[in-house]
């Protein structure tokens, strides 16, 4: 490798790069948090407004609070197992499998809930619409949950593969796993917050 390449690519220590990446991810979490704040604001704003009594029209079925928490639990498990993997190098292979599995199961549950929404309305022409503002908000929050699961599963799969791959920069990889921990923890917090939100129907 040439001198130039060395200078451009390996200018900073792995720890410096790792800390920088962690800060960057935390700033993206701030942006994601603002989006979540907006969704929760929308939920409670329309709930309290209850325009025309159409927050949850009479007779419309809704998901129970349990279903919201059912989606949150896999995120919490993923955050815990990933953290355990960070603490124990020996357990890392196992914990990364559990983390990925938890995220896949959670993603599947969320997808299944979206596929079987009980509050859709179909008119004579076959056009489907959401019956009430609760239904609209629920679908949006569930959609953002799917996005969180998809992105987290991508990260967890990468960690799983990399844990089994040799010749990778070990210290930088460890920093990246710590950075991933920030994301997983945030996803768990976001899932809990949406769980609380969707419990107040």
């Amino acid at each position: 490798m040439s001198h130039d390449t060395e200078f451009h690519v390996h200018h900073d220590s792995d720890a410096a790069v790792g800390r920088r990446e962690r800060l960057g991810v935390r700033l993206l979490i701030v942006a994601d948090g603002a989006f979540l704040f907006g969704m929760i604001f929308s939920y409670f704003y329309l709930r309290n407004l209850n325009a025309g009594g159409n927050w949850l029209p009479k007779g419309v079925k809704h998901y129970s609070a349990t279903s919201a928490w059912l989606v949150a639990i896999p995120f919490v498990i993923a955050a815990i197992t990933h953290r355990a993997g960070l603490r124990s190098k020996q357990a890392r292979n196992l914990t990364s499998v559990v983390t990925l599995l938890a995220l896949l199961v959670g993603g599947f549950i969320q997808w299944d809930q979206l596929a079987h929404m009980p509050f859709l309305l179909k008119d004579d022409g076959g056009v489907v619409s959401f019956n009430g503002a609760y239904a609209s908000n629920w679908a949006l929050i569930a959609g953002s949950g799917i996005f969180h699961y998809f992105l987290s599963a991508f990260i967890a799969l990468g960690i799983l593969i990399r844990n089994r791959t040799t010749n990778l920069p070990e210290e930088l990889d460890l920093w990246r796993q710590r950075t991933a921990q920030s994301w997983f923890t945030w996803c768990a917090i976001a899932a809990i917050l949406t769980g609380i939100t969707l419990s107040i129907i």
């Binding site: 603002a34 907006g38 959401f130 503002a133 609209s136």
Partner: peptide
Amino acid sequence: PTFMLAMVQTGLDRTFNTGFFDANMGGS
């Protein structure tokens, strides 16, 4: 992100018949 959210909601109202901004559907 809040502007992005407003646009996501507009997009959902336009495509999947959600009712974030339609008073007949509990929106505002």
